[in-house]
Design a protein around this nucleic acid. Structure first.
Length: 414
RNA sequence: GCCGUGGUGGUGUAGUUUGGCAGCAUGUGGGACUGUGGAUCCCUUGGCUCGGGUUCAAAUCCCGACCACGGCCCCA
């Protein structure tokens, strides 16, 4: 028995039904915000990802040489690919250019709950609008997308990297030192950072103060004012102060993030609880074009897990018709009905095994069909069908011409 | 990569401590039932993750691998 490779999953019919529903919620919401879908290749030149994220990530990506000797890697995320696509073929589009994507990505990591070697990302890139309003739209969309799925127990943290950057720069810390400090405070090891870098209590006060108190500590810097603007605009999107927290300890792992950043966590997920991250970044260096972008990525699998933990279900509704022919002589009549309903976009299936009526109805029940349509000699002679409502169990004989009207009136979409 | 827990029909489980006929439920297929589903009953199907070791005998004990889970590291 050959099994699935480590860190991969199969998705059965029920899971796919749920996943598609959630995917469509995200997709619809994002289109509603004026974004257009794109898709990039599953694999790229390895260099693309190393340039973007640094050589250290090579350990964690699926990379190999193809038969032509090229260094190839399965995408570990989409941002680099989408920006490559932009630089290669979308540069001349009018701005802002609003793009979204959905698909699988791959990382060679130790699997655990919420972490797989093949996982799905849903994300956006908002290219060429360097304003607080663009940042606000980016954050608002991410938040709305998650809320739209019904997810409730989430926390969102927003920050502006430049605030701490300015502070530490003033104090004379080098770039490497600053990065080490960020890493420590991200891991909530602030005290350790204070000791190691001989930082004053002012720094601790700065990163732990409520947002409103920050001007008292460092003055109304331009970064502070920018972030304040973003929060004001967020409320125009209906994302209010109680929906998030301004937290200067929120730092993103990579140095191409430059301005406003944010993270959303689903508290009940455990160790791998971050379901969304994003912000403002500039990948111009790699592609030789100075373009600012804002985007986010939702960890789709974690979102599905979080919804499950909150017991938010996506019940499938009964729809469609199941035709039960009784006896060989009615088969042409039954297929005539089958074809008519299918052509009218009503999900319709027919018994293929010639089973007893009882078994056939049991199948229709388990298959969540809304109606069963029984046709036998009696119906054939009268030009009728017996229409059975699988929810109520009631049935009636109706003229064949009336069938379409009877089953097409309510939700029987396929 | 590190530490820990676990793995029994498709699914959920009993059995593991103290080695001795792998049991139950559910599901699948068929039947009771060729003009009526969700009920009931009968039959059938199907399993000890893999490999080695100890033993008269291993699901059970030992070692290793694989996989999953909890956490660390990392987290684009």
């Amino acid at each position: 028995m050959i099994e699935r490779p480590r860190g991969t999953r199969d998705f059965g019919p029920e899971q796919m039904e749920v996943r598609r529903k959630i995917e469509n919620i995200l997709r619809d919401k994002t289109k509603n915000f004026g974004y257009q879908e794109v898709l990039t290749p599953t694999f790229e030149h390895t260099e693309l990802f190393l340039e973007k994220s640094g050589p250290s990530i090579e350990e964690e990506i699926y990379s190999f040489k193809d038969k032509g000797g090229r260094d190839i890697a399965l995408r570990p995320e989409f941002t680099a690919s989408v920006m490559r696509m932009y630089a290669e073929s979308l540069k001349a589009e009018s701005k802002p250019l609003k793009l979204f994507y959905f698909g699988p990505a791959f990382r060679y990591e130790r699997p655990q709950s919420g972490r797989y070697r093949e996982f799905w990302h849903f994300g956006t890139e908002l290219i060429g609008a360097d304003t607080a309003r663009a940042d606000a739209e980016n954050i608002a969309l991410a938040y709305r997308c998650l809320k739209e799925t019904g997810l409730d127990d989430i926390t969102m943290r927003i920050s502006h990297l430049q605030i701490l950057e300015d502070y530490l720069d003033d104090k004379g810390f080098s770039r490497d030192e600053r990065e080490e400090i960020y890493h420590m405070i991200d891991k909530e090891e602030t005290e350790k950072a204070l000791d190691k870098f001989d930082l004053s209590e002012d720094f601790k006060e700065l990163i732990e103060s409520p947002f409103e108190d920050i001007p008292d500590l460092i003055g109304e810097t331009s970064s502070y004012k920018y972030l304040k603007d973003v929060t004001d605009i967020l409320s125009l999107y209906g994302v209010e102060k109680e929906d998030y927290e301004i937290d200067l300890k929120t730092v993103r792992g990579l140095d191409y993030y430059t301005g406003v950043v944010f993270e959303i966590e689903a508290e009940r997920l455990g160790a791998e609880k971050q379901i969304c991250g994003g912000g403002d970044y500039n990948l111009g260096d790699i592609f030789g074009t100075d373009i600012s972008s804002k985007g986010f990525a939702i960890g789709f699998d974690r979102l599905v897990l979080a919804l499950d933990k909150e017991e938010i279900s996506f019940e499938k509704s009964r729809n469609g018709c199941y035709i039960v022919p009784i006896g060989e002589e009615v088969i042409p009549y039954a297929y005539d009905i089958l074809n008519e309903l299918r052509e009218d976009d009503i999900k319709t299936d027919i018994d293929l095994k010639g089973r007893s009526i009882g078994k056939a109805l049991g199948y229709a029940d388990k298959g969540d069909f809304r109606y069963s349509i029984l046709v036998g000699e009696d119906e054939l002679e009268e030009g009728e069908v017996t229409l059975k409502d699988m929810t109520s169990g009631e049935q009636e004989s109706i003229k064949r011409e009336e069938l379409l009207g009877a089953v097409g009136t309510d939700e029987t979409e396929s």
